[in-house]
Amino acid sequence: MDMNLFVLGYLDAGTGSLVFQVLVASLVSAGVVFGGVMTQLRSFFSRVVLRHRPEQSASESPLSSDKPVSAFHGEPTLESASHRKAA
């Protein structure tokens, strides 16, 4: 880092602070990159796990996505009914 290239302004930026800042910024950037890689890996493996999940047994029929389901006692909600009408 050539400090002669910088416009240091009128403030004393502090040698320790300048040097330390470069290290911290590298660390934090590496953290951001690492976080991004971890997120991608996590999403990749979750897809792989989903793909290899054992089939559901025949007795447990999956819910139909067409059937409106409410959080309250399983009754169809007005909202879901109206959405279906609009659709």
Partner: peptide
């Protein structure tokens, strides 16, 4: 001697501000 050998990228600076 005290200067790091490389500069600081804009991305690194932005990460510092975010942190």
């Amino acid at each position: 001697k005290t200067r790091p050998s490389r500069g600081m990228s804009l991305k690194a600076l932005q990460s510092l501000v975010t942190h």
